[in-house]
Design a protein around this nucleic acid. Structure first.
Lengths: 150, 150
DNA sequence: CGCAACTTGTTGCATTGACAACAATTTCAT
DNA sequence: ATGAAATTGTTGTCAATGCAACAAGTTGCG
């Protein structure tokens, strides 16, 4: 039997709630202040400021299908936030680069994001943060076993 | 300046990663073992086992638009997991009830879900869980201020 | 009563995402 | 070299979601 409110399921549920709350707050602010969805923000943040990056690389850093990324970058290009050029060393590849507008938006939205996160965590001391990080690291999801014994 | 790897942004990023990992694991298993999406699972879990519930009530407990809930319940009904009947005391309302199949699926999927969560948290002691819960509760997202000073 | 305002659920429409199929290119084994 | 296999990105198609508009029912104020 588990102590009142301290079983893993309870903790997980609470984490889910907090996660949803904070993500909602972040998405609302990014949308309102910068016209960005969470996914667009993630992509923007992962495009280097001073060089290009290939779709392939971006895919490793964010959670999105290739097709979704492809179309999302198309939208960003239409909005003038990035440019896409063929990789000269590998004709299959597409290099993405921030435009000046895109770079500005990246910086501004990153600041917005960081401000909100800092505010949310404002009640925790350095020590708290350190302990929290340590505990979170001890959560170990089994990595979705790919074995399907047919 | 923040200590190496202990700023709120770092902690938040790590929490995002763990969250995504665990959610992925849960979704994969629910899908594979029970043919349920995460949303369907959430809905199923929130339908009482021995009585009916109205759409309105369900909406308070899960994160979904009315239209999405309406259609999702339609799907569950088609699959024979729930029945929907008009509320006799309020003709606007729709009462949802689990079928025997739905009840069984609710129980089985809840067990699957709990097993995975428990496994993921297996490395944490009771004390750890308690501390983690406490720290998580101290995270306070500003509730997406609804003031739009036009 | 009687009509306006609210509540509740459904439907039309647009957006976004994943998966599968595809085309173009590169890599690798022979 | 040469053809098979792998990589990379795009496009077709479909499922799921949210918003707006709507229909039906309820409530409340006069």
């Amino acid at each position: 039997m588990e102590l009142a409110g301290c079983g893993p399921i309870t903790v997980w549920r609470r984490m889910l709630e907090k996660h949803a709350d904070l993500v909602d707050t972040l998405e609302a602010k990014l949308r309102a202040d910068h016209g960005l969805t969470a996914t667009e923000f993630d992509v923007l943040i992962n495009i280097p400021s001073t060089t290009t990056i290939r779709h392939r690389e971006l895919l490793h850093q964010i959670v999105l299908s290739r097709s979704a990324l492809s179309r999302l970058l198309g939208r960003l290009e239409t909005r003038g936030l990035v440019t896409q050029t063929s990789d000269s060393t590998d004709q299959r590849g597409v290099c993405v680069e921030l435009t000046p507008d895109g770079l500005r938006l990246k910086r501004e939205s990153a600041r917005t994001n960081a401000d909100i996160v800092r505010t949310a965590f404002a009640g925790l001391t350095e020590e708290n943060l350190s302990v929290l990080l340590d505990l979170v690291d001890q959560i170990q999801p089994s990595p979705a076993e790919p074995n399907e014994p047919r």
